[in-house]
Design a protein around this nucleic acid. Structure first.
Lengths: 154, 154
DNA sequence: CGTTCATGACTGTATGTTACAGACGGAAAA
DNA sequence: TTTTCCGTCTGTAACATACAGTCATGAACG
């Protein structure tokens, strides 16, 4: 049986395809929107916005990145004024990273632009179908998150 | 209104999340599966399997990559015996890239492994829900592809 | 209270992927 | 035939990332 004959095969194919599209779209995005807030910066700001100030380790765990990578990322973001770093009052070893107003503004702009793109792209979809897509993606991510958890504590 | 309050906002959020998961999963994949067939190699082999031998430019266009990037990729893949290169009989400038049996075998192995992961991950889903997810992903990709087309010929 | 171990951040280094610019040769057009 | 265009390849640079090691702080335990 060809892998594509099964529903699971189709899911694998479509997720792979989605990855390629997303990458290509990101790279093709005009400089003023993309370079101003590269991928890691965007997700970091999203998370800080959602969960409040975090230390580097927490960010690394959340983003599934090495601590050193996050250190460099937030270093660059600090230079651009997107986030601020301060000593963690509860742990002298830690560094608390918090989003600045400017950082949140930039994140929000990117987010609105992306939502706009999806809105245009799905213009012909019914509201029901859009809701169904959102639900399915949410559930897929929940499944992925559960698997991540399971793998981290084997 | 917060962007997440709308269905479109949720879709944007979930796709961004899915990207992070997919990246992290790819990086966390054990060497024997991952290094043996890195991301670009996998999609190149998938495309060659689907569409037959292609020259470098066609691959680059399809994958939304620069020609030089594809040149290097197929160079590495040739060294590993995953693809073969020959002069394009129809165009002396071109190089025809074709998958080898070994390359297709490796691709298929990776594909099955991935399908297996999805299968486990979605074990608790009903067949109806799985089918619904596959359908929604397919439709989302169609919308993305349509947008790509539109942007390429503006 | 001091020693030892664990943890958080950071730095040095290496790798992989990518793009852009330029070279070179073959193809197509004038 | 000459000029221009196109496909591939090579040189170079940027960037994100991981791994290993360093340094400082906190925690546990005798």
């Amino acid at each position: 049986m060809n892998a594509d004959d099964s529903v699971i095969g189709r899911i694998e194919t479509e997720v792979a395809l989605l990855m390629r599209f997303a990458e290509a779209t990101r790279r093709a995005t005009p400089v003023e929107a993309h370079r101003s807030l590269d991928r890691a910066a965007y997700v970091i700001l999203r998370y800080l916005d959602e969960a409040g100030p975090q230390n580097v380790s927490a960010l690394a765990a959340r983003l599934n990145l090495d601590g050193s990578t996050v250190t460099r990322q937030v270093g660059a973001m600090e230079r651009e004024g997107l986030i601020a770093r301060e000593a963690d009052p509860n742990d002298g070893r830690g560094t608390l990273v918090s989003a600045t107003a400017s950082g949140l503004r930039r994140m929000s702009t990117v987010r609105m632009a992306r939502a706009e793109i999806y809105d245009e792209m799905l213009a012909s979809w019914s509201e029901t179908d859009r809701a169904e897509l959102a639900t399915m993606l949410t559930r897929l991510n929940e499944a992925l998150a559960a698997r991540s958890q399971a793998r981290r504590r084997p």
